[in-house]
Design a protein around this nucleic acid. Structure first.
Length: 450
RNA sequence: GUGGCUAUAGCUCAAUUGGUUAGAGCGCCAGAUUGUGGCUCUGGAGGUUACCGGUUCGAUCCCGGCUAGCCACCCCA
């Protein structure tokens, strides 16, 4: 009988324990950081009515939607991100929730686009957003969360690039290009990659800009210096545009506040050429790049969107937030050797050494688990060497070895699997001395870069 | 979605101008005086050369298709 070839769809992946432990640890870290700012968890369905999802991001995102008819003939789609479902969610529940509402949402999203390193068709996003306030404080807080998050995940060399759509829109308004802003921004965004000459070409070709307009847009690319220097050079460029000036003011405020809150200047960089992001962004925009993997793309992006919920309700529900691309970040961390090779979540290994003592091993394991430790008891009374090898491979921190001699003496051998050293701990006075011996910090599963 | 490159054991790679039983290292399993792993030694398992088809006396090798991965475009986490 022939077998079915086991395989997975393009862009979809299996996760083995080593990868999954790392994923779960990243999720735990994100959850901890989000909660520390008061964001509360929500969840929404993977599947939405198609009309909820279409027309929210851009033409491109509509093309990438996984869509089909369900068994009842309804047109449905898999969510493309977590922000559009949030807009729907808020329109439905804002009365019950009240504003401002801060939520985080961790879950998979699906995009039917071509795959590459760090680009998958199914991937996990970890969003946090603040809904129902236009306050600059919420923008600042978004930057702080991104910073705390990436740092908590073990990175020290990264850059959050920040810009504001109002600055760009104000400038384009002044130049009479606002009706072609998407095309202009798309070209401008490629600056770092294709250079200013080709940006100029594209501006003429795709945005129909005249030479004067092109020259003025390209002035944006000539800004140099630190954040405050760029701000000063930006001011004259938006002079006369109320929107543009407001945008510069908000950037100024954001950068000053973030710096005051302890974000180093080199980690939060004003970059007027970052423009992309989905069409729904209206204010501040964030993108986060790892210094050591600049080609990986942004691992945490977001911004302010003041009109998104307007598609679902007449109520004014502005929002600001960002999304951590967990799977992309993990792909980067694997490349940077930041992912530990442990494949067990437990730290304590108990060797099944004496076949007559199963009950004693089980009791010991139970006592340690009751104290909050992760404990695995080997199922077979195999050769001790083989058991220790198994334990070391899996990444256990400590092995407990007890045979006839130890039981007779009322002790257990506590073996540090990293160093190979072991010592005897008495069980005569109860489990506490053993717990003390095991209390040493558990192995880090993700190593920070030097 | 478009274009290019690639595809051999769990992983990294070999295999003379297409030639018969496709190899190595690492890993895995089992041993090396019946209580201690990471070093060493021995043995073993594991491949319809991604899959389907074509050319040929004969295909891992040449051709086509398909699937997947990577790169660029596009876009994005």
């Amino acid at each position: 009988m022939s077998t079915i070839e086991p395989r997975t769809l393009k862009g979809f992946r299996d996760y083995l324990p080593t990868a999954m432990l790392a994923r779960e640890q990243l999720i735990d870290t994100a959850r901890r950081v989000y909660r520390s700012y008061g964001f509360a968890p929500i969840d929404t369905p993977a599947l939405e009515y198609l009309e909820i999802l279409t027309g929210k991001g851009s033409d491109e995102t509509d093309k990438q939607l996984y869509r089909f008819q369900d068994h009842g003939g309804r047109d449905v789609g898999l969510r493309f991100d977590l922000t559009v479902p949030l807009a729907r969610f808020m329109a439905q529940h804002s009365a019950a929730l009240g504003v401002p509402f801060k939520r985080y949402h961790i879950g998979p999203v699906w995009r039917g686009e071509n795959t590459q390193r760090g680009r998958y068709r199914e991937f996990m996003q970890c969003d946090f957003d603040t809904i129902g306030t236009l306050a600059p404080a919420a923008d600042v807080e978004t930057a702080l969360v991104i910073h705390d998050l990436i740092q908590a995940l073990g990175f020290s060399r990264f850059q959050i690039r920040v810009n504001n759509r109002m600055v760009l829109n104000g400038l384009l308004d002044r130049l009479g290009l606002s009706d072609r802003s998407s095309a202009v921004l798309r070209s401008l965004d490629k600056l770092a990659k294709i250079g200013r000459d080709r940006v100029a070409e594209e501006l003429a070709q795709f945005a129909g800009a005249n030479p004067d307009q092109i020259r003025d847009v390209l002035r944006l690319t000539e800004l140099t210096g630190d954040n405050s220097a760029i701000l000063r050079q930006l001011e004259p460029l938006v002079a006369g545009s109320e929107t543009g000036q407001a945008g510069v003011a908000r950037l100024d405020q954001l950068l000053a506040a973030a710096a005051a809150a302890g974000v180093p200047d080199n980690r939060l960089r004003l970059d007027v050429s970052i423009a992309r992001g989905l069409d729904y962004y209206t204010g501040v925009i964030f993108e986060t790049f790892l210094d050591d993997l600049p080609t990986l793309g942004s691992v945490c992006s977001g911004g302010r969107y003041d009109n998104l919920a307007a598609l679902f309700t007449k109520e004014l529900l502005p929002g600001v937030g960002a999304s951590l691309g967990l799977d992309r970040l993990l792909a980067g961390m694997e490349e940077l050797k930041m992912v530990a090779s442990a494949s067990t979540p437990a730290t304590v290994f108990i060797a099944f050494f004496d076949p007559q003592r199963l009950v004693d091993y089980l009791r010991l394991a139970a006592n340690l688990r009751a104290a909050g430790l992760g404990v695995e008891l080997y199922p077979d009374p195999k050769k001790l060497g083989a058991q220790l090898k198994y334990a070391a491979r899996r990444g256990f921190q400590t092995a407990l070895v007890a045979g006839e001699n130890e039981f007779a003496a009322g002790i257990v051998q506590v073996k540090d699997l990293a160093t190979g050293h072991s010592r005897d701990v008495s069980l005569a006075a109860g489990i506490q001395p053993l717990l003390d011996a095991l209390r040493d910090s558990p192995p880090p599963r993700v190593r920070p870069l030097p």
